[in-house]
Amino acid sequence: MSIIVTESLTRTYGRRRGIDSVSLRVSEGALFGFLGPNGAGKTTAIRVMVGLLRPSAGTARIFGLDCWRYSDSVKAEVGYMPGDLRLHAWMDGNQALRIWEKVRRRDLLPYGRDLAQRFDLDLTVKVRRMSRGMRQKLGLILALAHKPRLLILDEPTVTLDPLMQAAVHRLLREMAAAGHTVFFSSHTLGEVEQLCDRVAVIREGRLVADESLDALRQRAGHQVTIRWRDNAAASAEPPPFLKIEPPNGLVWSGMLNGPVDQFIAWLAHRPVDDMSISRPDLETLFRSYYASQGSGS
């Protein structure tokens, strides 16, 4: 079952582009990564989903409900943390949780305090005295305290230290394992790679990919590095299924677009000193996506 469905979702700001015909489906229990560089349209899409912006065209539905028209019902089961998080300066964590529990009409304090312990956050400190990282932790606690069915996080770990990032990642994995859906945007590719089972890539407001991480990697082929034993082999013409970057002495590196056994058979009778073959990391995929889309446009 799809928790988030957007169809041809478009949002413009006057003449300025926000997002253009974004169609997405996020299934229940997924850990979904929404990738794109700054200004690509990630935050605009998220703002439409949480009812802050009205779509210019197309639809956005969460739990089958229109995100603008039934925004309050949708948000009852959504936990949201904005990218550029600002909290009311006069609040401390306890006050915030008390207000949130009255707004949501749920008992949030026990789990909120558990989360604070887990994130090592003192709930008695006023927001105005908190560091950015502390505010980010409080934002996460407020988004998570009601154990939402869907968690929407806009670059959630950007100001957290590596240890805290790992704690957040663990928690998100636990939530997904318990059947909660996590939709989060990021431009930190390693984070998405560690966490997500499915990603969408947005570029200049348009969706350029929406598939599982494995499928994305499959499609992208393999990363290959070969160290030749002699110059003759290094200066030979590469086969059509190997796309090699400009050679660097005896080393070739590039992408294999074809079956691995074909490559090994081709390599078997050649003077190879060393060789590695691997799936590309998301960073490489992302760059190749952007490079190819950029050259295509």
């Binding site: 949480v50 959504v78 009311h88």
Partner: peptide, 11 residues
């Protein structure tokens, strides 16, 4: 900038 938090509460 607190509108992102206040206006995304379920009301």
């Amino acid at each position: 900038g607190t509108a992102d938090v206040t206006f995304t509460l379920p009301v």
